[in-house]
Amino acid sequence: MSADTGINSPGRAQVGLKTARTDKWWLAPLRIGVILGFFVVYATIRIFMNKWYWVNDYHYLTPLYSPCINEGCSPGSSHLGTWFPKFPVFIPYSIITFAVLAGFRGTCYYYRKAGYRSLFFAPAACAVPEPHKSYTGERKFPLIALNLHRYFFYGALVFGILNVYDGVLAFHGKDGGFGFGLGTLIIWINLVMLWLYTLSCHACRHIVGGRLKNFSKHPLRYRYWTFVSKLNPKHGTFAMASLFTVILTDFYIMALSAGWFSDLRFFN
């Protein structure tokens, strides 16, 4: 920020400090920035690996590769069939999944706050000056596209249903019948967190009832809105928790698939 703009603008109190905050205001954006950075690096590496996403013995499929729909997918992992020929090596098998789910998180109101604070310092913390000379917000391309968050929400719903289908298939025993192990449990914990994150979304809250002027004329939608409004204050918590559970689920399945260790089986 230059010398005569922002808090240094003519007429404002010339305090002489960028910020008078004495608390550790930098800690929260640093922590979130490290977590987001780790997830971006981890997810990028994983989607370009194109392997270790399927455990045939127990029918575990990592959410990062669901659905796997090209001819290069491991046998048994293509629950929805193969819609495309084998992708060349530089195209991730999960490119559609990744585009929709990264789009959902990238346009999410919580992650926007986290990203603006941690990655763009706009601002890093309240009453701490941002370093940018000018600011136009979300009014111009490309950031104006963030207004399409609702479409990614619709996509996330579809992928959420597919994840439930994968979760049901994960009750698969080694002998072909019913069975479950630690992997099944991890997959279902991840499913719960993903659905809590998806259903607590601000776009969901708007779509189910928030857009209405008269709740009294739409009692059912009012009940949906009330339900989502109860989840919504925890949206940030669900966002970060589901980020960790996605990584945990993917890592566990990768480890099983690669043979680093074997699944802890509770039944069959």
Partner: peptide, 24 residues
């Protein structure tokens, strides 16, 4: 009124003495 300027970083909510959830 420039709603598009808002990048929902929630500082308004953080400082509100009436605890109004302005952003959400």
């Amino acid at each position: 009124h420039g709603l598009g300027f808002c990048n929902i970083t929630k500082c308004c909510t953080e400082v509100c003495p009436e605890h109004i959830k302005i952003t959400d």
